[in-house]
């Protein structure tokens, strides 16, 4: 294609040739299937989002090549991170991340930092909500805090030294108490343990617990965000996501959001990154994506470029601090 251009424009000036080059460079296109690594197993939140992206891209024909999802969950994602770090310059490789981007290297000491790879785009942020069983007497954050001070409540969460565990420790510090933290393998399992009253409380993501909320089995107390969630449609008994107060407004100064973002290996061209940013913007504009966001009550902040890098910088520092306080850093 390029050579035909050049043959046709053989007589053109240097300026025009340079212009043709620039135009072809902007229109970078993948020349083979694009792999999307998931640093977790099949069935989890990151996996679902990755497969949703794959399906949306295929359904709306957003790219000439298909996206291929690959799960690399070894060592809490460390395997995927190290592999992307090694594959410098691979323009056909994407990585979807969650908080393990920060927590795994800090907790296990594997040689990886987010600066080893190229940030492409933040897709959304996942919220965390404080849940209790609806048969519990705790109607508000104040009740909960009073109870937590009097006894050692049992908190169920996903994994150890990861987001749920970090929030639990921060929560304990804010209240001035300690929780018995019990790690499980997945968020769905944690929600059911709360319904079955094997634990007293959880910090499940909205999507993991919404069904039990609808069925009247669990009760949300507050959300760990700076603002209430922007979804005003009633879920149960006229209560909507937007009615859940922030924890901060209830006197619990804990904020935590989980990154759902896309990264690439280091050493790829700017035009390649721009192509994927563009692609992801198209994905975010589809009705399927909006449906997914509303289902999971996601915080739809989406950043790219320098703002995204600045955000990552801040978050990494915050994780280091939180994890150091909790004693979660690798020795």
């Amino acid at each position: 294609m390029l050579s035909t251009c050049r043959r046709l424009l053989a007589g053109c000036t240097m300026v025009l040739t340079a212009g043709a080059f620039a135009a072809s460079a902007v229109a970078w296109q993948p020349s083979k299937p694009v792999q999307l690594y998931v640093p977790a197993g099949t069935g989890g939140g990151a996996d679902q989002m990755a497969r949703a992206i794959q399906g949306i891209v295929a359904k709306h024909n957003l790219m000439s090549q298909p996206i291929v999802v690959q799960n690399k969950g070894g060592g809490a994602g460390a395997e995927a991170f190290l592999e992307v770090k090694e594959k410098k310059g691979d323009a056909h490789l994407l990585l979807i991340t969650l908080s393990s981007l920060f927590t795994t290297p800090l907790a296990t000491g594997v040689p990886f930092r987010w600066t080893d790879i190229t940030p492409v785009k933040m897709l959304a942020l996942d919220e965390f909500v404080l849940w209790v069983n609806s048969e519990s007497p705790w109607q508000s954050v104040a009740d909960f805090v009073a109870a937590a001070k009097g006894q050692k409540l049992r908190m169920g969460g996903t994994g150890s030294r990861q987001e749920d565990h970090i929030i639990t420790v921060a929560l304990g510090k804010a209240i001035g108490t300690q929780f018995t933290y019990v790690p499980y393998k997945g968020g769905g399992e944690v929600a059911v343990q709360l319904v079955g009253r094997h634990v007293d409380t959880t910090v499940n993501n909205p999507i993991e617990a919404v069904s039990h909320w609808k069925a009247g089995k669990v009760r949300p107390l507050c959300v760990f965000d700076s603002q209430p969630m922007p979804y005003p449609d009633a879920i149960v008994d006229g209560k909507a996501w937007s009615d859940i107060p922030t924890c901060k407004s209830q006197g619990l100064d804990v904020e935590y959001l989980m990154l759902r973002g896309i990264f690439m290996p280091a050493g790829v061209g700017d035009e390649t990154v721009r192509f994927y940013v563009d692609l992801l913007d198209k994905v975010r504009a589809t009705p399927e994506w909006k449906e997914l966001m509303a289902q999971g009550a996601f915080n739809q902040t989406a950043l790219d470029g320098p703002e995204f890098r600045a955000w990552l910088e801040r978050e990494e520092e915050r994780h280091r601090k939180l994890m150091a306080e909790a004693g979660f850093l690798a020795k």
Partner: peptide
Amino acid sequence: LGIPGSPTAAVLLGGLIMWGLQ
């Protein structure tokens, strides 16, 4: 209940969510 009894069920569960079912 939304709890998968097997790894395959876990993936099907993800499918339900993607199709807009809770």
